Amino acid sequence: MASLQIKISELMAQKKINAVDIEKETGLNRNTVYSIIAGNSKNPSAHNLQLIAQALGVTLESILIDEEEIQISSLSDEQMKAFADATSSTINIIIARGLNFPLNKLISIIKEVYQYALKANPPSVDDRFVDWLLDKYKN
Rank of each mutant, 00 (worst) to 15 (best):
K81Y: 11
N100D: 12
I17M: 14
S35F: 00
A82Q: 03
L51R: 10
I109S: 04
E112A: 11
H47I: 14
D66K: 03
K81E: 13
M12V: 05
R30W: 01
L134P: 03
D127L: 14
N29L: 11
N48G: 02
F129C: 08
L28A: 08
D126F: 04
S88T: 15
P122D: 10
S62D: 05
S9A: 13
I110Y: 06
K111C: 05
Q71L: 15
L106Q: 10
T90P: 10
V20G: 09
R128A: 14
A117Y: 01
A117R: 02
E25H: 07
A96R: 13
Q71P: 05
L75Q: 06
L75A: 06
I109T: 03
Q50L: 13
E112P: 08
V33A: 06
Q50P: 00
H47Q: 14
I65P: 00
F101M: 08
N121K: 14
S9W: 01
N100W: 05
Y116S: 13
L118M: 10
I109R: 05
K105L: 13
F83Y: 12
S108L: 12
A117L: 04
E10R: 12
I52K: 02
G57W: 02
D126H: 06
Q14S: 13
Q14G: 08
E10W: 00
S89P: 04
S73E: 11
R97L: 14
M80P: 04
I94C: 13
I63Q: 03
L56W: 03
E68Q: 13
F129E: 03
N29M: 09
D85N: 14
I95D: 15
P122M: 08
K81L: 12
E78R: 11
L56G: 06
P102L: 07
P122L: 09
A19Q: 12
N121C: 05
D127I: 15
N40I: 01
I36Q: 00
P122A: 10
A96N: 15
K42G: 00
K111I: 05
T90W: 01
L28S: 06
V33K: 00
A46Q: 09
P123A: 10
E68C: 12
L133G: 07
S41I: 01
L103N: 11
I109D: 02
Q54R: 11
E112T: 12
A46K: 08
S76I: 04
N48I: 00
R128K: 13
S73A: 12
A96P: 05
I94N: 08
L56R: 01
I52P: 01
V20T: 14
I63D: 01
L60P: 00
A82N: 03
N104M: 07
S41A: 13
I37R: 06
K15P: 02
A13L: 11
I70N: 06
L49D: 00
A120T: 05
N29F: 05
S89H: 02
E69R: 09
L60M: 06
I91S: 15
I63C: 04
P122S: 11
L118W: 02
A96E: 14
Y34P: 02
L75E: 01
E67C: 03
G27A: 05
P123Y: 03
Q71W: 03
R97K: 15
D126R: 04
D77Q: 15
V33Q: 01
S9D: 06
N43W: 02
V130R: 04
N18W: 02
S45N: 02
I37E: 00
R30F: 09
T32E: 10
E23L: 05
G27T: 01
T90Y: 08
V125W: 06
S73R: 08
N31A: 13
E78N: 07
K136V: 12
